[in-house]
Amino acid sequence: MLRDQRAPAPAAETYPIRAEHDLLRTRHAVRAAAVAAGFDLIGQTKIVTAASELVRNAYIHGGGGSLVVEQVRSLTGRRGLRLTVRDSGPGIPDLDSAFADGYSTGPGLGHGLGGARRLVDEFHLDTGAGEGTTVTVTRWAT
């Protein structure tokens, strides 16, 4: 499958993830960016839900971090959003378990990473013991 080439991206917005109220603030920011990028209601819901799961993971498991929201456009003109969630937590020691539905090291239902991955078009995770975790996802508007 050929992957879309990216055109130069507009400026990115960065949001800190330090307190519980940041979870709601980041959801609103992602929804506004999705509307601006031309996402339909289903696309908005999917990208906001994925962002919510990833930001919550960074807050609960990574001790906080940041969310970067970028509007992207492919060379063929497709519009989308790229989200990058970073934390400086302990990293994810067992990725296979972390992606399995029902697995959780906290109080949640265990659908975070796997659920977020199913809601986006592109998913990349970088993690290491003691190095934190960075998750970058992209969803394209239809």
Results as ranks from 00 to 15, higher is better:
Gly132Phe: 14
Arg56Ile: 01
Arg139Glu: 02
Gly130Thr: 06
Ala19His: 15
Gly112Ala: 12
Gln71Lys: 08
Val137Phe: 06
Asp22Asn: 06
Thr45Val: 09
Trp140Ile: 03
His28Ala: 15
Gly43Val: 04
Asp40Ser: 00
Ser52His: 15
Leu125Met: 15
Arg73His: 10
Ala29Gln: 03
His111Phe: 14
Glu131Ile: 08
Leu23Thr: 02
Arg79Gln: 15
Ser104Met: 06
Leu83Asp: 08
Lys46His: 13
His111Ile: 10
Arg117Val: 05
Gly77Gln: 14
Gly132Cys: 10
Ala33Met: 14
Gly43Thr: 03
Asp94His: 11
Ala98Phe: 07
Gly43Leu: 05
Leu2Asp: 14
Phe39His: 09
Gly65Ser: 12
Ala19Arg: 12
Ala37Lys: 01
Ala12Asp: 10
Gly38Glu: 10
Arg3Tyr: 09
Pro93Trp: 05
Arg73Ile: 13
Arg79Ile: 04
Ala19Gln: 15
Ala29Lys: 05
Ser88Pro: 02
Ala19Gly: 02
Ala36Pro: 06
Tyr15Cys: 02
Leu125Gly: 02
Arg6Phe: 15
Gly115Trp: 07
Ala100His: 10
Gln71Tyr: 02
Ala98Ile: 10
Thr105Trp: 09
Arg18Phe: 12
Ala141Met: 08
Ala37Phe: 12
Gly64Asn: 01
Ala50Met: 12
Thr134Cys: 13
Ile47Glu: 08
Arg31Lys: 10
Glu70Ser: 14
His111Gln: 11
Leu67Ala: 07
